Amino acid sequence: MRPVLYGDVSSAARVLLGTAPDLRDSLCRQMIGEAMAADRHRRHYCKPHPRWGNGSLMSAARRRRLSAEPGFDDPEYCACFELVLRCLRQRA
């Protein structure tokens, strides 16, 4: 997967925000897996993956519906943001 920046985490969290809480963990891991597979594809074929994009988490997330980005005063958004960070940490 390409280096993860704020926009990657924010995009993934916005996808999770519009997802039922009991499905968020598996969807987060799925997006990370897609980003990893897309990056392998990009490096091998020198072009983006047709479904998952350029290997960034943002690209994998933006293939889905994103909620409007709230501020960090929204507890649900904070929980989703934390979940993305936790999944990334567990992957490393």
Rank of each mutant, 00 (worst) to 15 (best):
A20W: 13
H44Y: 06
H44R: 13
A20M: 15
R42D: 04
M58H: 02
S67F: 00
L83S: 03
V15S: 10
V9A: 05
L66P: 04
L5Y: 08
L17Y: 01
R2P: 14
H49P: 00
E82Y: 04
C78D: 04
M36K: 07
A38Q: 05
D74M: 03
C80L: 10
R86M: 12
R86D: 12
V84D: 02
W52S: 04
D8P: 08
D74A: 08
R24N: 13
A61G: 10
C87F: 00
G18C: 09
S59N: 08
D39W: 09
H41A: 12
S10A: 13
G55A: 01
A35S: 11
F72W: 10
D73C: 03
S56A: 15
A60D: 01
D73N: 11
C80Y: 01
R63W: 00
M31Q: 10
S11W: 00
R91Y: 04
R40A: 07
H44F: 09
A20D: 15
V84K: 00
D39V: 06
P3G: 00
L23H: 15
A20I: 11
I32C: 08
A12V: 06
A37K: 13
Y6N: 14
G71T: 09
C46D: 14
E76I: 01
G18E: 09
M1A: 08
L83M: 13
R43V: 15
M36T: 14
E69C: 13
I32Y: 00
Y45T: 13
L23D: 14
G53M: 11
A60T: 03
P70L: 10
